[in-house]
Design a protein around this nucleic acid. Sequence first.
DNA 1: ATAATAAGTAACTTTTAAGTTACGCAAACT
DNA 2: AGTTTGCGTAACTTAAAAGTTACTTATTAT
Lengths: 107, 107
Amino acid sequence: MAIPTLDAFQVIGDPSRRKMLMLLSADSMTISSLADNFDMSRPAVSKHVKILYTAGFISIRDIGRERYCTLKKDGFEELQGWISYFDEFWTSKLKKLETLLNNKLVN
Amino acid sequence: MAIPTLDAFQVIGDPSRRKMLMLLSADSMTISSLADNFDMSRPAVSKHVKILYTAGFISIRDIGRERYCTLKKDGFEELQGWISYFDEFWTSKLKKLETLLNNKLVN
DNA sequence: ATAATAAGTAACTTTTAAGTTACGCAAACT
DNA sequence: AGTTTGCGTAACTTAAAAGTTACTTATTAT
């Protein structure tokens, strides 16, 4: 079970990991309660959790023999930055079109 | 060169494809002008372009023997929806914390 | 003390995305 | 007409993520 180091985009590229983040948006969960929601072995879930943790999408709190996973903002921030760059792109493109149309109407 | 069908998240999971989108945010480009920016064969670039096209991140306009790639909004929208879901999560979490703190101060 | 539960690690296999080279075809030069 | 340029496709290889089973450790419960 080699642990690949993935960037934020690769991390959310996997559907299972996105599902995990969705589940955790409802509530903190332990590894095995997470695993109950997946058709894969617990070690596989464990690996995904580690990837999410490493990339800053979740924090983990150990309580006895259990590990509680909780959403963490850090991982999402890189994504937000990227998305908002293209948001800017579209809005500025719209503005340019607007200006163009206004000029056409005036002239 | 099998053409995998990837979802929007898997599409931007690849660093090369993200770079392509960045390049295209400056201007429309042909396949080979795109390829000039990468340390990989042109067919490889071609494949990435096809993936971007299939997922709705770009449109392609054929002019003679050249193909011009242009950014297209569609592909980005699924990503925006996902991101804004978690944006909501964090803001509502902050609101709850705020309310909690206010109650503590009042009581 | 023993058994059961929660989870990590190791060693491996499977899957598949990502890359390559070789080739073909159509548009555009000369 | 012949050649170059832009690009697609096919067949294949490579690399790495994603999964498995078997085992170990630590905590909790009986």
